[in-house]
C-alpha cells in the first residue's frame, strides 16, 4: 500500500510491524529467528502460556524475585519493630507473664507482614516492570490482532528497535510467516 513517494511524516508515525501465526510451533521458530537477528524491542502475543517461549524469545531473567525477597525481609523487620515498639517500649503491656519482648509471640505477625510486603511488592513490581497500567496500546487498533485472545499467535517488532529498518525487518517477518506483515501506527 505504501509507495516510494509517500514519506513517513505524511501519516501517523509507524509503531512497528505485526505478523500472525496459526500454530505454536511456527511461532516458536519465528521467535527464535527474531531473537537471533538481534532485535530487542519486540514481543510475542499469545492467547495462553506457551512453555519454551521464553527461551525462544531469549527473554532475560527478571529482577522481580530480588525485589520481592528484599521486600519480604523489610516486612519481617517491620513486623518485629512494630511489635517491639508498641508492646515493649511505647506502651509496655504484660501478657500472661511473658517477657515484654518475646520472639515466639512476634513470629505470626512478622510472618504475615513478610507475606504482605512480599505480595504487594510482587504485584506492584510486576506492573512497574511491565510498564503497566497502560490505557491503550497501538496494537489494539489492528483488527486481526483481536484474535490474540482466541486462536492466533503474533509477533510484533517495534520501530523503536535500534535494528529496525522498514525493508529489512519486513523481509525478516515475511520469511518466518506465510501471513501478511501488517503495519501498526503509533497512537495519535
Amino acid at each position: 500500500m505504501s509507495t516510494g513517494n509517500t514519506t513517513r511524516s505524511d501519516r501517523a508515525a509507524l509503531y512497528g510491524y505485526l505478523v500472525a501465526f496459526d500454530k505454536v510451533d511456527e511461532l516458536l521458530v519465528a521467535a527464535a529467528a527474531v531473537r537471533d537477528a538481534g532485535y530487542t524491542r519486540w514481543d510475542a502475543h499469545t492467547p495462553f502460556v506457551i512453555h519454551g517461549l521464553d527461551v525462544a524469545m531469549g527473554v532475560k531473567k527478571t529482577v522481580l524475585p530480588y525485589i520481592v525477597f528484599l521486600a519480604g525481609l523489610t516486612g519481617a523487620a517491620a513486623g518485629i519493630l512494630l511489635q517491639w515498639w508498641t508492646n515493649a517500649v511505647d506502651y509496655p503491656f504484660l501478657i500472661s507473664g511473658k517477657p515484654l519482648f518475646s520472639l515466639p509471640a512476634n513470629i505470626p505477625v512478622a510472618f504475615e507482614t513478610t507475606i504482605l510486603f512480599a505480595a504487594i511488592s510482587a504485584l506492584v513490581g510486576m506492573l512497574a516492570l511491565n510498564g503497566l497500567p497502560q490505557l491503550s496500546h497501538p496494537l489494539f487498533s489492528n483488527r486481526s490482532f483481536k484474535r490474540v485472545t482466541d486462536d492466533r499467535f503474533f509477533i510484533s517488532i517495534e520501530a523503536q528497535d535500534p535494528l529496525f529498518e522498514v525493508a529489512k525487518t519486513r523481509e525478516l517477518l515475511e520469511s518466518v510467516s506465510d501471513q501478511p506483515v501488517e503495519e501498526i501506527e503509533e497512537l495519535s
Binding site: 500472661s96 507473664g97 511473658k98 515466639p104 509471640a105 513470629i107 505470626p108
Partner: peptide
Amino acid sequence: AFSQYMLIWYAN
C-alpha cells in the same frame, strides 16, 4: 514445628 511450639509456649 513452630505452630506446635508456639501454642505450647503460649499456653504454658
